[in-house]
Design a protein around this nucleic acid. Structure first.
Lengths: 233, 233
DNA sequence: AAGTGGTCTAGACCACGCG
DNA sequence: GCGTGGTCTAGACCACTTA
C-alpha cells in the first residue's frame, strides 16, 4: 500500500468523492477514521479532517464522535440561493436597471404585520411599495415595512433614487432572519403594478430580518411570471 | 490592551460578528489582518483564520490575498434550502406519508426532455408520474424522467411502494446538478392530480442531475397551493 | 472505558495579486 | 516585491458518544 500523495485537502476531498461516486464506499457504509486515512493518503490528519468536514457540509457524509464517519444513506441536497440586491441581480444579467417608487407612507400597519414584526399594534411603521425594472420592463414588485424604532434614519430617505432594498443593506445590519419561497396568485393591485393579468402565478419571496430582538424589516418580493430562481447542487 | 481570551474559533467568530453588527467595523472597512487579530485575541492565527473563513462564507466578509479582509459593502444573503426526500419532509412535520404511482412508461420523450438531458432524440427514457400525500391529502406531484442508460436497474423497479424520489437517492449517485424554483399555473392534468382548480398557482421545483457527463434524472415537483419553502438567514 | 471527531498551537511555506 | 490569506504539519488535549 503505497501512500499515494494527496497533499492538499481539495485533492483528498476529490478522492473521497470519487470513492463515494464509484460506490467503493456505499450509502450507509462506515469509512476509515481520520487517522487511518491520513496514513493512507500520506498527509496530516488535519488535512483529512478539512476534506471530510467539507464533504459532510454538502450532506454526503454523516460524522459523529466515536461512531465515526458514514456515507449518508439518503443525502439531503443543499441548494444555496444567493439573494443579492435586485439591482445587482439585474445588472449581472446584462440588463439595465431602473427603480420606481410607487408609494411611501408612515402609518399603522395591519395586525398581521405588527404581529409578525412584534411591534406595538398601534406603532407606526414606514411602508414602501416599489417596482424594480429590467430593460424598462417590470421585474419585481417590492412591498416593505420598516421598523422606525430600529432604523430611524430611514425617515429621511425618500427611496426614490436608491431603493429601500439597497439602502437598508448598507445602513441596517441584521443578526438573523427568515425567508420563505412560495407561489401566489397576483391580486388586482399587484398584478396592475407588474403589468400582468390578475391571478397570474408569481413567485413570492418573503423575508423578515431581525437585529437581536427587534425586527428590522419585513418585505415581500413578487417576481414577474416566468422568473426562475436557479442554483447548482 | 489585555489580549482577551478568545480561545475557540466560535468565540472569535462571535466577537467578529459583534463588531460588524455594532458597526465597529462598517461596511467596506478593511479589518486587521489575521496575524494582528491573533495577537489581539490571544490565540493562534489558524483559529482566527477558521473564524474569518466561516464569516466570509456567509457573505459578510470579503477576503483577498494581499488586499486583506473587508466587511462586505452589500452582503449577498445566502439561503441554504435543504431538499430532503419528500417522505422525510412530510414525516418531519408529524404527518403520515403516502405515495401513489400514477403512471410509469418506457417511451421516447418530448424533444425538450431529450434535449435537456442530452440523450438521443429517439432514445427511450423511463417516465414516472406520482403523487406524494401528507395525511392522505395531495402534497406534491412528481413528474420524472430517468436515463436508463445510467440507471438500468430502474427498469425492474415498480415504484409503487418506494417512490422514485427515494429509490434514486439510494441507487443513483450524482456528481452535480441544477435546481430551479418558479411559480406556474397548474394545467388541467396536473391540477386534477393535485385536486386543485385549474390555473391555480403552484410552486415548482425543477431538478436535473448528472453523473459526470451523463444525465441521471430530470424531475419536476409541483406543490399544492399554500406550500412554502422556508429557511433561516 | 475507550475510540472518534473537534479543535488549538506554533511554525512553516506557498500562491496570489496589489502597488 | 512583498504583504496577505491559504494551507500543511506534528503533536496535543478535549468532548462527546457509544459499547
Amino acid at each position: 500500500m503505497t501512500p499515494s500523495s494527496f497533499r492538499t485537502w481539495q485533492s483528498v476531498q476529490a478522492e473521497v468523492l470519487r470513492r463515494i461516486h464509484a460506490r467503493d464506499w456505499k450509502p450507509g457504509d462506515l469509512i476509515p477514521n481520520e487517522a487511518d486515512l491520513a496514513v493512507e493518503f500520506g498527509c496530516a490528519r488535519a488535512t483529512v479532517n478539512r476534506a471530510l468536514r467539507a464533504v459532510a457540509e454538502t450532506g454526503l457524509l454523516d460524522r459523529r464522535r466515536k461512531a465515526g464517519t458514514r456515507v449518508a444513506a439518503q443525502p439531503v441536497a443543499k441548494a444555496t440561493l444567493e439573494i443579492a440586491v435586485i439591482r445587482h441581480e439585474v445588472e449581472a444579467r446584462g440588463d439595465t436597471y431602473d427603480h420606481l417608487l410607487i408609494e411611501r407612507h408612515y402609518l399603522t400597519p395591519p395586525l398581521a404585520i405588527s404581529g409578525a414584526m412584534r411591534t406595538g399594534s398601534t406603532e407606526k411603521l414606514l411602508h414602501v411599495r416599489a417596482l424594480h425594472l429590467a430593460e424598462g420592463a417590470p421585474y419585481a414588485l417590492e412591498n416593505r415595512w420598516i421598523n422606525m424604532r430600529v432604523v430611524p434614519e430611514a425617515m429621511n430617505e425618500p427611496f426614490d433614487r436608491v431603493s429601500a432594498n439597497e439602502w437598508l443593506l448598507q445602513h441596517a445590519a441584521y443578526t438573523h432572519g427568515d425567508i420563505a419561497f412560495s407561489a401566489i396568485q397576483a391580486n388586482g393591485a399587484d398584478a396592475d403594478s407588474l403589468g400582468i393579468a390578475e391571478n397570474s402565478a408569481v413567485l413570492a419571496i418573503d423575508r423578515l430580518t431581525w437585529n437581536r430582538e427587534a425586527s428590522v424589516t419585513k418585505v415581500q418580493l413578487l417576481f414577474t411570471p416566468g422568473y426562475q430562481l436557479r442554483t447548482g447542487l
